[in-house]
């Protein structure tokens, strides 16, 4: 993994993008698109742009324990989750479970690749995609209704 902690060294991203960084951004975008079952050029371009924008805005919290790959992964996650939030109208798309559920739904809805070219397209009206996602959404458990199941005693109760 690349271990270039640009942010921690105080460089501004806008100053330069090395060949290694370009490759890293493209690899990250490709990996994230593949995790959504896609290899679409337009979607790839949008994600690369989103990653570059994130780097350019220096929007990551500088932290010496994270490396560039992790920062890019976080940026990709946030970009996609943000887009999914716009599409579905739900705010809770950033959490691990809800993000994975939406990923599942997108993979199911996009089996024939019909939504690939609209991926990360924030200009478009996504009501039909939102409908497709809601149809494919899995629900692993119903609402939690906690209660205590007390252990019974075998002892004679004190009177």
């Amino acid at each position: 993994m690349t271990d270039m902690t640009v942010a921690t060294q105080g460089f501004s991203y806008a100053a330069f993008e090395s060949a290694a960084m370009t490759r890293l951004i493209e690899d990250t975008a490709r990996a994230w698109l593949r995790s959504f079952g896609m290899a679409n050029t337009q979607a790839n371009h949008r994600l690369v742009t989103a990653l570059r924008d994130a780097l350019a805005q220096d929007s990551f919290a500088a932290n010496d324990r994270t490396n560039m790959q992790d920062l890019l992964d976080q940026a990709a996650h946030d970009a996609i989750a943000g887009w999914l939030a716009t599409v579905t109208g739900q705010h809770d798309c950033y959490g691990s479970t809800s993000f994975s559920m939406l990923r599942c739904a997108f993979l199911s809805a996009n089996r024939d690749g019909v939504w690939s070219e609209h991926f990360l397209d924030s200009e478009r009206d996504h009501r039909d995609l939102a409908m497709a996602l809601s149809v494919q959404m899995m629900l692993p458990t119903p609402s939690l209704k906690s209660c205590e199941m007390p252990r019974q005693s075998l002892e004679r109760r004190a009177s």
Binding site: R34, S35, F36, G37, G95, S96, T97, S100, M101, R103, C104, L107, S108, M138, P140
Partner: peptide, 14 residues
């Protein structure tokens, strides 16, 4: 498999 991967992640506790 991206689908199996996403499904597994979704079923894990947060």
């Amino acid at each position: 498999d991206p689908y199996a991967n996403a499904l597994h992640s979704a079923l894990l506790p947060a």
